[in-house]
Amino acid sequence: MITITNKEEIPIVKEQDVVPLRNRVKDYGVKIGMSILNQTKLITATSELVRNLLKYGGGGKVIIEAVNNGRENGVRVTFIDNGPGIPDIDLAMKDGYSTGKSLGLGLPGTKRIVNEFAIKTEMGNGTTVTIIKWKNG
């Protein structure tokens, strides 16, 4: 069972919100003693997902949480938008797929660099992506 030890919600409405968000996520990683490598993976995943939130979801909010599963500490980041939703999650999770003509990590690349990855979408009602990076993961 996961318990939350610290939590904050950050509205994301413009590109200028990205860097402060990245810094807050890094702070959470530092606070639990996460290695530089794992901090970098967490920040990279956060960057990719927050840019998706802005580009495809028209903005939204991000919830950052310090979590514990009984034996390990981690950082959970949830990205919530009220955009159009993802028409085909299976397709969106395929390597090389992009609607944005970008060479970013995309959803599958992001999934690979975190320990836990969940996505929920509903057409016309937005998308929620939740990631967890464990301290030693």
Rank of each mutant, 00 (worst) to 15 (best):
M1R: 12
I4V: 15
T5V: 14
N6C: 00
K7D: 03
E9H: 02
K14D: 11
K14N: 09
E15G: 04
D17K: 02
V18R: 14
N23Q: 09
R24H: 10
K31L: 08
G33R: 13
G33M: 12
G33I: 14
N38Y: 10
N38L: 11
T40L: 10
K41G: 06
K41T: 04
L42S: 15
T46R: 01
S47D: 15
E48A: 10
V50I: 13
R51G: 02
N52M: 08
N52K: 05
Y56R: 03
G57L: 03
G59V: 01
E65K: 14
V67L: 10
N69K: 14
G70M: 03
N73A: 12
G74W: 04
V75Y: 04
V75S: 09
V77Y: 00
V77W: 00
T78P: 06
F79D: 03
I80M: 13
I80R: 05
N82L: 15
G83K: 04
P84K: 09
P87E: 09
D88Q: 12
I89A: 09
D90P: 04
A92P: 09
M93I: 03
K94S: 15
D95S: 08
S98Q: 08
T99K: 10
G100T: 12
S102H: 07
S102V: 05
G106K: 05
G109Y: 01
R112E: 15
I113E: 12
V114F: 12
E116N: 09
I119W: 02
K120Y: 02
M123E: 07
G126Q: 04
V129M: 00
I132V: 15
I132Y: 02
K133T: 09
W134K: 13
W134I: 07
W134P: 11
K135R: 15
G137K: 04
G137L: 02
G137S: 03
